[in-house]
């Protein structure tokens, strides 16, 4: 009895692990099939522009609003922590470093996952369910070329731009609270940012993170949509998986990238 129970468990672990590895391998091949289509997309910029609007422009408002609130919260928290040490003049630096290194890339990517990533999965899943992808194949049009690759490329371009907007608006939010509301000197706020934020160490590294998040999240979103079971429940599960896996992937990869960037 115990031996059979143990055997079943080992079998279950084995089959689950094989399933995960197989799906990961399929996802990697899928990503490569998309990437090799990028050069051809340059010939048809209108398709990319259309997708930039869908995944990018429509995400701008929530990114700006969230960036402003995060910046204002940082302004409050930073000021009341620093003022105890008489260091409130460093508020600009605290806000800017927090945003450029971590909060900008991570939060903008999380917002993108919730707004655009879920929409991408649902859209592609629905196209599969309603046989639109099959219809493309029957019209001698490769759905990877026409539907998936443009969305992936648009996502990779969009996320760093959203991150830049988030960070910029966040710094303005911190300025509004710190300088306008709480009386930190305006010149000091900007000069500490100017002196303390390093272009390569902070800004470029933040942007690199953002590009990596853009690739990972959009990859997960389009793959989950393409691989979804063609039913209402299948699309629902795929959309949930995109948001959960995408968010966890952002946080996990952020840790790895931070360790690599700031340790070496």
């Amino acid at each position: 009895m115990n031996a059979s129970f143990l055997t079943n468990w080992i079998r279950l672990i084995g089959s689950t692990s094989l399933g995960v590895v197989e799906r990961l391998g399929y996802a990697v091949i899928f990503l490569l099939r998309c990437i090799v289509r990028f050069p051809k997309l340059i010939m048809r910029p209108s398709i990319i522009v259309q997708q930039l609007y869908s995944v990018g422009v429509l995400t701008v408002v929530i990114t700006i609003v969230a960036g402003a609130f995060v910046g204002m919260v940082l302004g409050f928290q930073g000021y009341y922590t620093l003022v105890d040490f008489g260091a409130e003049s460093s508020l600009g630096l605290v806000v800017a470093l927090s945003l450029t290194r971590e909060l900008g890339p991570v939060l903008s990517a999380l917002l993108y996952t919730g707004r655009a990533g879920s929409a991408l999965t649902a859209e592609i899943g629905l196209m599969k369910t309603t046989e639109q992808l099959a219809a493309l194949e029957m019209m001698a049009v490769n759905p990877i070329q026409r539907v998936i690759a443009p969305r992936l490329l648009a996502g990779i371009i969009t996320v760093p731009l959203l991150c830049a907007m988030f960070t910029f608006v966040g710094i303005l939010g911190g300025y509004f609270i710190g300088v306008v509301q709480l009386g930190v000197d305006s010149g000091v706020y900007w000069s500490t940012i100017n002196d303390g934020v390093d272009l390569y160490q902070d800004v470029v590294n933040g942007m690199i993170k953002s590009v990596v998040f853009g690739v990972i999240v959009t990859w997960i979103a389009v793959f989950e949509g393409y691989d979804s079971y063609p039913s209402a429940e299948g699309i629902s599960s795929a959309t949930t998986r995109t948001v959960v896996s995408g968010s966890l992937a952002i946080l996990g990869v952020d840790y790895i990238l931070t360790a690599l960037m700031f340790r070496f």
Binding site: T130, E131, Q132
Partner: peptide, 12 residues
């Protein structure tokens, strides 16, 4: 070839 699908499959 041309194919007409049961769901019509028009691009929405």
């Amino acid at each position: 070839m041309g194919m007409m699908f049961q769901s019509n499959a028009l691009l929405t």
